[in-house]
């Protein structure tokens, strides 16, 4: 067994705890040595701490620098601030990395999709600067900065170079928002000059949506401001099989949090019914970030095999297995493959 990693586990709420237990079982069975430290996050914290994100949780993540997070619910409209957005802000997790890759056994209308989205995670209309500027006008400031745009573009090109990717696209609406999206595009073009071996291009966001649903195979890496990124990453997840299989990583210079991007499905809480794959593939991303490639590959291979057999899969992919039964089937497959 190699180096021990200490990871903050944030089970979240609703179905989060049962999903995270299933995922922990699979990761622990892969042979990787992880000490899990559990902390609270989400709506269940409100009564106990008066906040969705307690200070104790923040301090633990600050110590460990890496966390795996289950789903949480963000209240709509008035009320408490999103725990997810707060985490990204507090730890300056500026790069939201959202791969969208076809899983072979999930039948989709396309032969190939292998897109990596790099969503700027801290600026844009998510800067929480909103005012009722009169009793009938609301205003939200869209904040785009040169250093914020520069670093997400550089992150995307670095990732592309390290992973043998060929082209990075900048997605924008600079034809209309000439200052904000114009600045984002300028920064992208400046960064692109540093990476002559990687092809670069730009595309207007509405055209990008249309092209994605018509011919997604043409895209490789996309770098996007926060709001377009929020929308297009879910679009890409839909292309490859839905949010149930969509991993996500929020990465900063000093910290990374890996999470499912789907909701907490509170109506299924305690029923052990839901598919834990999104948190599991996020966990696989985390293992690769921790340089545990062997464990990551072992889990991935076993998961694909279990999905391919369709004997122990959850209801959303046509099976009847419970959350933990699906996880156990992956563990059994790993042992059989060993």
């Amino acid at each position: 067994m190699g180096k021990q990693h200490v990871v903050t586990m944030l089970p979240g709420e609703g179905t989060g705890p049962e999903i995270c237990e299933a995922v922990r079982m699979v990761i622990d069975a892969s042979g990787v040595d992880i000490k899990w430290e559990y902390e609270d996050i989400g709506l269940d914290c409100l009564e106990k701490y008066g906040t969705l994100l307690p200070d104790k949780t923040i301090q633990n993540i600050a110590k460990n620098k890496v966390a795996l997070k289950g789903p949480t619910t963000t209240p709509i409209g008035t009320g408490h601030k999103s725990a997810n957005v707060t985490l990204r802000k507090v730890f300056d997790l500026y790069a939201n990395v959202r791969p969208a890759k076809l899983i072979p056994v999930l039948k989709r209308p396309w032969d190939k999709i292998d897109i990596i989205n790099f969503r700027e995670n801290t600026e844009d209309s998510y800067a929480a600067i909103e005012h009722m500027v009169s009793d009938e006008v609301a205003q939200c400031l869209k904040v785009i900065t040169w250093p914020g745009s520069y670093r997400i573009a550089d992150f995307a090109f670095k990732w592309a170079k390290a992973n043998g990717r060929k082209k990075v696209w900048c997605v924008h609406k600079a034809n209309i928002m000439k200052m904000t999206d114009g600045l984002f595009l300028d920064a992208f073009r400046e960064v692109a000059k540093k990476y002559p071996d990687i092809e670069s291009g730009d595309i207007i966001v509405d055209n990008c949506c249309m092209q994605l649903v018509r011919n997604p195979a043409q895209f490789d890496c996309l770098v996007l401001p926060n709001l377009y990124g929020d929308i297009l990453t879910d679009l890409c997840a839909g292309l490859v099989g839905g949010l149930g299989f969509a991993p996500g990583a929020n990465v900063g210079d000093g910290c990374a949090i890996f999470e499912a991007v789907h909701g907490s499905a509170p109506k299924y809480a305690g029923m052990k019914k839901v598919n834990p794959s999104a948190v599991l593939v996020s966990g696989i991303m985390m293992l690769r970030w921790l340089n545990e490639e062997a464990a990551a590959a072992k889990i991935e291979k076993a998961m694909f095999a279990v999905l391919d057999e369709r004997k122990h899969v959850t209801y959303d992919v046509g099976g009847t297995a419970k959350t933990d039964e699906y996880a156990q089937a992956i563990v059994d497959k790993m042992h059989a493959n060993a």
């Binding site: 600050a62 507090v90 600026e123 929480a128 900065t145 250093p147 670093r151 000093g254």
Partner: peptide, 20 residues
């Protein structure tokens, strides 16, 4: 006080936080 929408005073501020 906030910078790029993130509160920088009072309270905890990540040493890695990008500020403009």
């Amino acid at each position: 006080i906030s910078n790029r929408g993130t509160k920088v005073w009072p309270g905890f501020v990540s040493p890695d936080l990008l500020q403009v």
